[in-house]
Design a binder for these strands. Structure first.
Lengths: 139, 139
DNA sequence: CTTGAACCTCTAGTCGCTAGAGGAATTACA
DNA sequence: TGTAATTCCTCTAGCGACTAGAGGTTCAAG
């Protein structure tokens, strides 16, 4: 199976300019070209791009993905670093969730105190934003 | 109370270059200057900056904050738009939490399947990243 | 063979800051 | 009052991870 850049984009869900960007950043190899200078990709390019996409969706940085791709080139090495990258990401995701939950609580409190009908001068949303003392969070 | 830019930074938790950036972006007014061209802020500048900071901490975009500041200049208008901005933000925050929770689940599954001791070729983390079929999420 | 979609490169813009250079003003202390 | 440390000034450039657009070329279908 041979893909044009657009076909590859459809097959992986990565947009065309993003594919070119990944190539420029060295995450994927420059593919072969047609006589007319257009990119043509193969199955293994599609697999690599799917790997990248999945990692990005999981919140991995391009840096982390670059590391993983580098590691995958040495399949005989122990996978301790692979494990660590995943674990670090998990810690970060959990922290983000915690933080967002605190924000959710405060936003819910703020938003529910407003019926949208009184003048701005009396609006509790505005008051809440002006005055941080009501918050329990540490933001 | 008069603040130098550094004192204002300490008082609000907004970093010095960020204050200058907000000024350049028109979120805060250019303050008065000393003879030697240094910025000097007053209480109301501090309040406005605290408002901005609080909004940013709640995840509001600079755009949304700009809108709110604009609205606050018309304290007699009804606060329906204020309410809508807060409600929209709440919806977004909840969506972000949902999404992150799905990622957390997948990352936990991936990370727990790896003890860090086997070769990369056999690593489940790498396999999971290469192959999206095991995921239940829609990412 | 023509037409229209998809492709090419290149530059610049997005958001919300952050870092650094190179120099001037202010403040604290002797 | 002198001087040294700190803070301040402007300006430009960089970050991550793309996205948009201009202006031109190639490909594939009919």
């Amino acid at each position: 199976m041979i893909y044009s850049i657009g076909a590859l984009a459809r097959a992986t869900g990565v947009k065309v300019p993003t594919i070119r960007y990944y190539e420029a950043e060295g995450l994927i190899d420059p593919p072969i070209r047609t006589e007319g200078n257009q990119r043509r990709y193969q199955e293994r390019d599609r697999e690599r791009l799917a790997f990248i996409r999945h990692g990005r969706d999981l919140g991995l940085s391009m840096e982390a993905i670059r590391d993983l791709l580098e590691l995958s080139a040495h399949p005989e090495a122990p996978c301790a670093r692979v494990d660590r990258i995943a674990a670090e990401q998990l810690v970060e995701v959990r922290a983000r969730i915690e933080r967002l939950k605190r924000l959710e609580g405060e936003l819910a409190r703020i938003a529910s105190s407003c019926d949208g009908h009184h003048p701005i001068a009396d609006c509790n949303v505005m008051k809440a934003l002006s005055d941080h003392r009501h918050c329990d969070g540490d933001h």
